[in-house]
């Protein structure tokens, strides 16, 4: 399963819900305001640190760059749009809108 999250964890609980339904081997892709969760040392970075144990986490580069996010929670991988397409191709996707 690929879970995409496009909401800020500081604004609502979408990422928390997503993590509750993630199974081992799933992938979470953060995009749009969702990438704000990837900032290291934030009040919400524990969410990704906890999820890291059971799934892979990606953040979309274009959205990170646009928001000047450089220090990421350790273990968060980055991907570009073509990597995004690859992930969608490889998995069934659920968009946590």
């Amino acid at each position: 399963m690929l879970h995409t999250v496009n909401k800020s964890p500081f604004q609502n609980t979408t990422l928390e819900s997503c993590i509750r339904f993630v199974r081992p081997g799933d992938v979470i892709l953060l995009l749009e305001d969702g990438v704000l969760a990837a900032q290291a040392g934030s009040a919400k970075s524990a969410l990704l640190e906890e999820a890291m144990g059971k799934c892979e986490i990606y953040a979309l580069e274009a959205d990170l760059k646009a928001r000047a996010l450089k220090e990421l929670v350790p273990g968060v991988k980055t991907t570009d749009y073509s990597g995004f397409v690859d992930l969608v191709e490889q998995h069934t996707t659920h968009s946590w809108l």
């Binding site: 399963m1 509750r20 339904f21 993630v22 199974r23 069934t92 996707t93 659920h94 968009s95 946590w96 809108l97």
Partner: peptide
């Protein structure tokens, strides 16, 4: 429960969110 829902999600061909 969430485990049961997660297991059902894993079986789907498509998931549409609203």
């Amino acid at each position: 429960g969430s485990d049961e829902i997660a297991a059902m999600m894993a079986e789907q061909h498509n998931i549409l969110s609203f």
